[in-house]
């Protein structure tokens, strides 16, 4: 596991400069950050950072870019609390934020090698999964994986994130992309309408060699898992990234604890058999 152990203090962030800011939806924005010394974040897909704005606070944010993208990293942030709304409303390109991390285990992509990949993203869940999708689709890594299926659902047509990139996925011959909206709010929409589980029967994957990776709102997991089980998916081939309130990121502060597990350290990515043993997890 990659661990960026801060030498001086666990809680001392490194300053990063905002180099891009783009609005996706009313609630979500996209940001690119760079360290002044040009160094990489050295993260694994699925890890997260603690982002801080001095005087406002610190919040855990999933890393949305693949580590194959060098020299910068990207976050997709929903404006919900103090830190995230300040980031949206008051910080601009050229401003600095504090970054601690990367933290957490990330996806065990070494184990995924040679498998077909089924990505199931609900809403903002596409942000952390994009780090692994783009890693898988990177031309230096594409050969490590078989077929790639991307299932992505949103509440309505106004909520798409990474819209241009999703178009790019749709246009790739080596990717099958399936989109759905819970509720259609665009008369030009020709795609599927219904919750994300309605996409699963449409995909012709081989359960013997496919890894499913899920990220979305807590309610989604139970139903997606049920649907995958209907297709005889093996539990050990189902991975999910769990949301938890995290403060320290280093397994001390207790907020993200599920039973005796610190999600910020042992997670946020777990396979389904592990999640089944964690009470209160989903």
């Amino acid at each position: 596991m990659v661990a960026n152990i801060q030498e001086k203090s666990l809680y001392l962030p490194k300053l990063a400069k905002m180099t891009k800011k783009e609005r996706f939806t009313d609630k979500e924005m996209f940001f690119e950050f760079r360290f002044d010394d040009g160094s990489n974040l050295n993260h694994r897909p699925g890890q997260f950072v603690e982002l801080s704005i001095y005087g406002i606070g610190e919040a855990p944010i999933s890393i949305s870019s693949s580590p194959t993208q060098q020299g910068y990293f990207e976050l997709c942030v929903r404006s919900v609390g103090r830190v995230t709304s300040y980031l949206h409303n008051n910080l601009n390109v050229g401003d600095y934020v504090g970054i601690r991390g990367p933290f957490g285990n990330g996806f065990p992509f070494e184990k995924f090698k040679g498998h077909d990949m089924l990505f199931i993203c609900g809403g903002l869940g596409v942000a952390p999964l994009r780090s692994l999708i783009n890693y898988t689709l990177d031309k230096t890594k594409r050969g490590d994986f078989g077929k790639v299926y991307i299932l992505y659902g949103c509440k309505n047509n106004q909520e798409w994130l990474y819209q241009k990139e999703v178009e790019g996925w749709k246009n790739r011959a080596d990717v099958e992309t399936y989109l759905t909206v819970d509720k259609c709010t665009d008369s030009n929409w020709k795609g599927n309408v219904g919750v994300i589980t309605t996409l699963i029967p449409k995909v012709n994957f081989d359960v013997n060699k496919t890894i499913a990776v899920i990220c979305g709102p807590p309610i989604m997991y139970k139903f997606v898992v049920l649907e995958l089980k209907n297709r005889n998916f093996k539990e050990e081939n189902i991975y999910m990234s769990l949301e938890r309130r995290m403060k320290c990121g280093v397994g001390k502060c207790g907020h993200c604890q599920i039973n005796s597990v610190y999600v910020c350290q042992s997670g946020p990515v777990f396979d389904l058999p592990t999640v089944r043993k964690l009470q209160e997890a989903i």
């Binding site: 001095y54 005087g55 406002i56 606070g57 610190e58 403060k247 001390k252 502060c253 207790g254 907020h255």
Partner: peptide
């Protein structure tokens, strides 16, 4: 008990 929060104070 050792749980803690991380908070900024201006």
């Amino acid at each position: 008990c050792h749980c803690f929060d991380i908070v900024d104070e201006d």
